[in-house]
Amino acid sequence: MNLDDALNLFTAGLVSIGGGGLVVFALSSWLGKVWAGRILREETHQLSVQLETTKRDLDVFKEKAIRFQNDKIITYREITEIVAKLLAIMDREIGNSPVWQPIDGPLNEFNEQRLKLYGYLAMVAPQAVMDAHDDLIDHLLLTAIGEADYKWSEVREKVLFLLNVIREDIGIAKGPIVYKGKL
Results as ranks from 00 to 15, higher is better:
L115E: 02
I94D: 07
K174R: 15
F61W: 04
G20D: 03
H133L: 05
V124G: 01
Y118V: 05
E52R: 13
G18L: 13
A12M: 05
G95W: 13
T54F: 00
A65K: 08
S16P: 01
K182I: 03
V165W: 09
V124P: 01
K62E: 09
I74F: 01
G13K: 14
Q127Y: 06
H45Y: 08
A132K: 01
W30Q: 09
D104R: 10
V159G: 00
E43M: 08
D91M: 03
L9W: 11
N164Q: 02
E52T: 13
K116P: 01
T80G: 10
V165S: 08
L47H: 11
A148F: 04
I172R: 02
N96T: 15
A65C: 07
I103E: 03
E52K: 15
I166M: 14
I73D: 02
Q46H: 09
R92P: 01
D4A: 12
V124I: 15
V49N: 00
L51C: 09
L9P: 00
F68C: 09
R156I: 02
K151P: 00
L86R: 15
R56T: 06
P106M: 09
E93R: 15
T80A: 13
D149R: 03
L22N: 07
F61H: 07
L86K: 14
I177K: 13
E42C: 02
D57G: 03
V159F: 06
F10P: 00
I66M: 08
D5L: 02
R156Q: 08
D149K: 12
G171C: 02
A88Y: 01
L31Q: 13
K174L: 04
Q127V: 10
G171D: 02
M1V: 12
V49I: 15
A132R: 03
Y76W: 04
D91K: 04
L87A: 12
I17E: 13
H139L: 12
K182D: 07
N108I: 00
E43A: 13
V23T: 11
K55V: 11
K33A: 03
P98G: 13
L163G: 03
E63D: 06
F161Q: 04
L87Y: 06
T54D: 15
H45I: 03
Q113H: 08
T53C: 08
G13L: 11
H133G: 04
R114F: 03
K64R: 12
N164S: 05
L51T: 10
V178A: 14
A88S: 14
G95T: 09
L31M: 14
I145T: 10
S97I: 11
L107G: 10
L160C: 07
S48Q: 15
K174Q: 15
D71C: 05
M130K: 12
G171V: 03
D169S: 14
N2P: 06
A88W: 00
L7W: 00
G95P: 02
A88D: 04
